[in-house]
Nucleic acid binder design. Structure first.
Lengths: 349, 349
DNA sequence: GAAAAATTTGGGAACGTTCCCTTTTTTTGA
DNA sequence: TCAAAAAAAGGGAACGTTCCCAAATTTTTC
């Protein structure tokens, strides 16, 4: 039993073979197969198509791209394919770019600068038609020097001259805070990260402080927890919270930087008998798929992943068409996904 | 403010420019930049490298591929990038293929035959060096006619002559059953699907029946539920179970075809006061990330996604090197992830 | 020290398309 | 009917590499 059928080979059917069989020139065949059809008579069109059919010919887009300077490939560079947040964005990009004839290549950087620059290399060598990326390093010059239309995902204000699509973190944080406030919470703790992009921290923390100020609530620095935005960070958060002197007096709600942190913190706290939605309000951010499957289901601020992906793809499409058009920035609002981890404290007051 | 820096352009630095600056021929430059270094004197090597540096030259691998017939691109065709099961496999593939110099393109078929054939088209046009795929349609001939080394992910015995990597579903089902039996369960229900690949159903159902027979337990056809393996299916399953006449007498445990079904069924049943791990034992299959975050955490049979991805990549690597080597099939065992949804009924007996 | 051998270099074809320009054929119009 | 215009088809260069073979140069050998 062997790997490949020996008689499958011979797959070197090119435009020449088609031309010969159809009794026309390569140029004519090219006219038939290329999108921008030059004028071909109906008669020869049929002859050529029949020959293509008969030989099972497939156009080699790599070779075509050599001449046209188009690869019909787009790179999506994200931190982690296996993270639902990013893979759903990638999916949305793919969904909107493929109907336009582009293939989408996904590259995972795993938050590493080295991998990131490997992908930049690849982008320059493989000559993608465009790039959609979330960069850990805020190296804008690098991105601009790619020599390829690029769209950034994220909310870096540093990126002055590059198209950007992202969530409005300020607003997303604010609506979460607002919801807690409305439901009667006045002692709100925030857990966020100073790891990774510092923009994120400052945006969330800024929105947090602004909100407190707006409502005339006191700012207690001890309630601003700094943890990594992963499972470990969630456990750490639970520990830090419980370590706080008479914490139950000081905090009635916990706003977590993302869902992973919220979920693991919630599960960790349960071990000490503290039940989210009963003893303490918890709200997350992102709305990953797992959030609706926890018990109790997690209330969270949903980031519009799909809209982000679609918008990034459309922006890139426009940019590839017109490389010199004006730069655009799209910030989408987060929206509340109300489930069961936030207590309605209004009755009790 | 405009999209691209006007002076970035002019990015048409080719081997010719390098040759001219270094004062050598294109052939010599080619020798320097191609992997399989032909003999070049130390002196000229330096000259060329300096010229490359100076001009910021990047080799165009697309053009090179035209001549060498290598694209250094591999297609991974999976049903859904946004599903952790598949994205983790993709990640593993990427991790093992990239160090070998390959770029990995991920294609999501969303279980649609039409999309699948679109990817087959692409594979033929873009001339990937290899393909790793999970096919909904069991069209083996189509895959063999790709004219490209291919590795299948799954457990189709129909695929006689193609390298295959997958989970040993028979064994995975069996260890789950075994665990239920060990913990004192004698009335085991199975929920699986007849949607999608029929192999799966028959394998799981076969393992189920075999196990019952082996242990001398009666087979009750009413306990073999057929539902889709998604969230909807989980709710449907709960409904079907509760609709069963005095079900509490007839079933003490529920083996679900995958975790999504198990989790949603569990959450649905809770609404009727039936708590997994207390009133009913539930066991899933796959071990998706959410499974450890449910309450109570789900006991499940873990499929070795990472090993599958790595093995598929390595197999493909071997196949690309030696297209005519003997076909290999790797089936990896599932392993039990014991958490809290299975009751220990031994004490009670 | 010259022939032989080995090493290094260069010239051009080739990969499979597209594109520009020219030639041939068909259609149009008076 | 014949010139002019329009449409269709062909020929070859070009895209940026690699590869083969031949030429030039250096090194080895007797």
């Amino acid at each position: 039993m062997y790997g490949n059928d020996p008689n499958m080979s011979k797959q070197k059917i090119s435009i020449h073979e088609v031309a010969r069989l159809a009794g026309v020139s390569k140029s004519t065949v090219s006219r038939v197969i290329s999108d921008k059809g030059g004028s071909v008579s109906h008669e020869t069109l049929e002859k050529v198509q029949k020959a293509i059919e008969q030989l099972g010919y497939r156009k080699n887009i790599v070779a075509a791209g050599l001449r046209t300077q188009k690869t019909y490939m787009v790179l999506v560079m994200i931190p982690d394919v296996a993270n639902p947040f990013w893979s759903e964005i990638a999916r949305a990009v793919q969904d909107t770019l493929e109907p336009e004839g582009y293939s989408v290549v996904i590259g995972s950087t795993y938050w590493s600068e080295e991998r990131e620059s490997r992908y930049y290399e690849l982008a320059q060598m493989a000559r993608f038609d465009g790039v959609i990326l979330n960069s850990v390093t805020d190296n804008i010059d690098l991105i601009k020097n790619l020599g390829v239309p690029a769209v950034l995902i994220g909310e870096r204000s540093a990126a002055q001259n590059i198209d950007t699509v992202g969530t409005d973190t300020l607003q997303a944080t604010k609506i979460g805070m607002e919801y807690l406030y409305e439901t009667g919470h006045r002692k709100i703790a925030l857990a966020t990260s100073d790891h990774g992009s510092e923009r994120y921290l400052s945006l969330r923390a800024r929105a947090y402080k602004d909100f407190l100020h707006e409502k005339g609530l006191p700012f207690d620095p001890a309630l601003l927890f700094s943890v990594n935005l992963d499972a470990e960070g969630g456990r750490e958060l639970a520990k830090q919270l419980l370590g706080l002197q008479n914490w139950a007096e000081r905090v009635d709600s916990l706003f977590c930087g993302n869902d992973i942190v919220a979920i693991t913190a919630m599960n960790e706290l349960r071990k000490y008998g503290i039940i989210a939605g009963i003893d303490l309000s918890i709200i997350g951010m992102d709305d990953v798929p797992a959030s609706s499957q926890t018990y109790p289901p997690l209330t969270t601020v949903r980031k519009p992943r799909e809209r982000i992906g679609v918008a990034a793809a459309q922006l890139l499409l426009r940019r590839m068409q017109d490389p010199l058009g004006a730069v655009e920035k799209h910030l989408f609002p987060g929206e509340l996904a109300i489930r069961d981890t936030v207590i309605d404290r209004r009755k009790k007051r």
